[in-house]
């Protein structure tokens, strides 16, 4: 095992916040992969059994239709995580490629790419998504993630460009150029490692943002409605329980909020630790 890998884990372990974030994220990933294999989710309505209190049979009680809340969370985690992670990956790739190319190439390429980036930053996403919703049929999570990423790469691209403008005049990059190394080599072998901490943090934050945004897209009708998506569960809980006006529905309302909150908190904690682990200057 390489020294760097061991140091990474040691740093993560020492940072209690980061470590707890990592454990929570691991649990969520475990839940998403193995949870649905353990018990089938039956979404058949059992109105008489609605808003049941937590019990051995229903760990988090039941929803407005008498369906098991915990199982919905477990099944929803697969949706939530896959959309979040794929969207984050798209965001990262788009943001890095456009930002890096713009910053490194400069000149007209920079002007054109930054013009496009600024367009995406300034055009309000809501009306555009409305048009997209009218034109595009989302049929799978990959396409859903791509549309989520389409409006989240621009800030990252600008930030990467700024980093590039700073990095490209450093001695080691100038040396690479003098040696006649090709641009892709310089970008991916010399510059990318320097941006890894920044990209890693952005990956986590983009995943978190995509999960929240996915509910908005479902409510716009861009994507098929997934009643076990945590965000959609909150929406349904508020709609069917009136938020706070049905005391019987409190656990059903709070459960997805807690899950989403816990996931976001874990992401933030983990990304803090990640920055420390990947950026030697931050290590104490």
């Amino acid at each position: 095992m390489s020294q760097g890998f061991i140091e990474f884990w040691q740093t993560m372990y020492r940072n209690k916040k980061a470590f707890s974030g990592l454990i929570i994220l691991a649990l969520f990933i475990f839940m998403a992969i193995f949870g649905p294999m353990m018990k089938a989710l039956d979404m058949t309505v059992n109105f008489e059994g609605r808003y049941m209190s937590p019990s051995f049979a229903h760990w988090l009680g039941t929803d407005y239709g008498g369906r098991d809340t915990f199982l919905q969370l477990v099944y929803g985690s697969r949706d939530v995580l896959s959309i979040g992670l794929i969207a984050a990956l798209f965001t990262l790739v788009l943001g890095f490629v456009i930002g890096a190319l713009s910053g490194f190439a400069g000149g007209k390429t920079d002007t054109v790419l930054m013009f496009i980036t600024n367009l995406f930053l300034t055009v309000p996403s809501f009306p555009v998504l409305m048009i997209v919703a009218a034109l595009v049929q989302i049929k799978n999570p990959v396409m859903f993630s791509f549309i989520l990423a389409a409006w989240s790469w621009a800030p990252l691209a600008r930030a990467i460009r700024s980093q590039l403008l700073s990095l490209k005049n450093r001695e080691f990059i100038i040396a690479c150029r003098i040696m006649g190394l090709k641009t892709p080599y310089i970008l991916f072998r010399e510059i990318l490692p320097n941006l890894t901490p920044y990209l890693a943090i952005n990956f986590i934050m983009a995943a978190q943002g995509a999960i929240v945004a996915s509910v908005g897209l479902m409510m716009l009708g861009l994507a098929p409605y997934s009643p076990t998506n945590w965000g959609m569960m909150i929406q349904l809980a508020v709609q069917n329980t009136g938020g706070i006006f049905n005391p019987k529905g409190y656990i059903y309302l709070i459960s997805p909020i807690m899950c989403l909150g816990l996931f976001q908190m874990a992401c933030i904690f983990f990304s803090n630790g990640l920055e420390e682990a990947l950026n030697p200057r931050l290590r104490s």
């Binding site: 979404m43 479902m218 409605y225």
Partner: peptide
Amino acid sequence: AEQFSKFGIPTKLKAVDSTIY
């Protein structure tokens, strides 16, 4: 949609913004 899917005809709901629905 759940009843159709359970019967074996996969069906999903799209809740679309009413301005375009």
